[in-house]
Design a protein around this nucleic acid. Structure first.
Lengths: 114, 114
DNA sequence: CTGATACTTAGCTTTATGGCTCAGCAATCA
DNA sequence: TGATTGCTGAGCCATAAAGCTAAGTATCAG
């Protein structure tokens, strides 16, 4: 494990914004141009472009320009990076579902009921 | 669907920092106190506390104070929120891995306008 | 009661983020 | 050719993030 932490920084940072997640949602249904993607958002185009750059920089989408139109498409592979991190994380918990944790969890219940 | 976008903001934002991910890694092995968690990091305690607050605010960890020691534990449930988002996202792609997408990819530049 | 420990609060600085406008440039269209 | 479309680049502004120090509070150990 110990995958590039820096890569995860960018990915999670990109996902931490509702506009960018909405764009991913839209691109999940198929590629689209910048201006098509921008339409639903009440935002100037240069501002919107920053979101696109964030998504592209993190590798969550890829873009290419044909003529004057830039088409964006989701890059599904990057999502695997997230899943890998999640499952690494789970592996930690599950490799160690032991008495210590149970002990603390129960003590915690006692506290919570105040 | 349409889970609280605001919740995802906080979760992804919290995950977008290597210190905070490292803390989660440590907590995956069991609960720990603030100062134990802080030890590996070359950072003043108040700075470290901000990371803890970020994690707690996003719901990824829970903390409780006993005497003068605050103990932190991971909250596994919040991770399900991420998985849900991921699988919603995948559902979009997979619900529509069809000729349309291929078609659009190839003919985009001519056919974008209806 | 005193001192050490374990945070906690307040406030400051620097940098990053997310928005804007204005201006430009290349590709299409009339 | 000239206008329109679809970005793109430069640069400004306000707010948030991530670090710091200094000082405060509350346990706990003697």
């Amino acid at each position: 494990m110990a995958q590039q932490s820096h890569q995860l920084d960018g990915i999670f940072q990109a996902l931490a914004d509702p506009t960018r997640r909405a764009v991913l949602g839209r691109l999940g249904q198929g590629p689209a141009s910048i201006s098509d993607l921008a339409k639903p958002f009440d935002m100037a185009l240069p501002s919107f472009m920053k979101h696109i750059h964030s998504l592209e920089g993190s590798g969550l989408i890829q873009t290419r320009k044909e003529g004057r139109v830039r088409t964006c498409a989701i890059d599904k592979q990057r999502f695997a990076t997230i899943e890998t991190w999640l499952s690494d994380q789970r592996a930690l918990w599950e490799g160690r579902t032991d008495r210590l944790e149970q002990f603390v969890l129960k003590t915690q219940d006692k506290e919570t009921q105040k």
